[in-house]
């Protein structure tokens, strides 16, 4: 995968004005990492719009390169395939984010509202706009069809209570990328000793999402 990419896009990243210089292969690895994490985590993760933007740029660049290749060149087929694969991963990543936004929209927006000044936003500006529109649209619809015709004390629905929250206690498979020590996996049980494990680098586990959520966002573990 990386070969075809570096051939096509190595020049684009050299004159890129980004602070950190990434090779296309690293970029795609980043995208795949974000994609898998997003696909398997029960809640919405922080947005990676910088990766999305770079990949989009890369794709346009590769398409343009492909236009110059002669017809019937065997190489063109491989590159075409490569573009298709990357586009699939990118679309799938954005799709699973959008699905979560739609599924948990009141909670996502609530979290955005209660976010402090310095904290990074979970949503990209576009996703935020989408979530707001979705909320307004759904609320208007429910009001127009049913709620406004109900008795006065029943005309409001608390969306936060009505729409289910993401289930953080669901189990996820993960691979450890950076050695971790003393991870608490049963914090609630008081009478028993706290249940603590060490995570070896490269080992794989099945654990509750809630206990390792911070490690997912810091990139220390990878969901698989």
């Amino acid at each position: 995968m990386s070969d075809a990419l570096s051939e096509d896009g190595s020049d684009i990243n050299q004159d890129d004005s980004q602070e950190e210089v990434m090779t296309p292969a690293e970029l795609i690895a980043k995208l795949e990492e974000a994609w898998l994490n997003e696909k398997f985590s029960p809640e919405l993760l922080e947005n990676r719009s910088e990766v999305v933007e770079c990949v989009m740029e890369q794709l346009t660049h590769m398409e343009a390169n492909l236009q110059r290749v002669k017809k019937g060149d065997a190489k063109a087929g491989f590159h075409r395939m490569e573009i298709d694969r990357i586009r699939f991963v990118l679309s799938s990543y954005l799709r699973s984010r959008l699905q979560k936004i739609e599924k948990f929209f009141p909670h996502v927006l609530e979290r955005e509202k209660s976010r402090g000044e310095g904290q990074p936003s979970l949503l990209s500006p576009e996703e935020f706009a989408f979530a707001k529109e979705y909320y307004a649209n759904t609320e208007t619809y429910l009001r127009a069809v049913a709620l406004k015709r109900m008795p006065p004390n029943l005309q409001a629905v608390d969306m936060l209570k009505a729409v289910p929250e993401p289930c953080l206690d669901s189990f996820v498979f993960l691979r450890v990328k950076e050695q971790q020590e003393n991870i608490l996996i049963e914090p609630e049980t008081d009478e028993q000793r706290d249940f603590v494990v060490d995570l070896e680098e490269g080992s794989q586990h099945l654990m509750r999402y809630r206990t390792i959520a911070p490690l997912v966002s810091s990139g220390a573990v990878q969901l698989i």
Binding site: V52, E53, M56, E57, D84, R85, R87, L90, E127, A129
Partner: peptide
């Protein structure tokens, strides 16, 4: 409008590419 806004000029139709190629 969400799909149009992805990554600049034309955007990306994410309703396509539903299955890995």
């Amino acid at each position: 409008s969400f799909m149009r806004s992805i990554g600049g000029e034309e955007g990306l139709d994410i309703t396509q590419d539903m299955k890995p190629p």
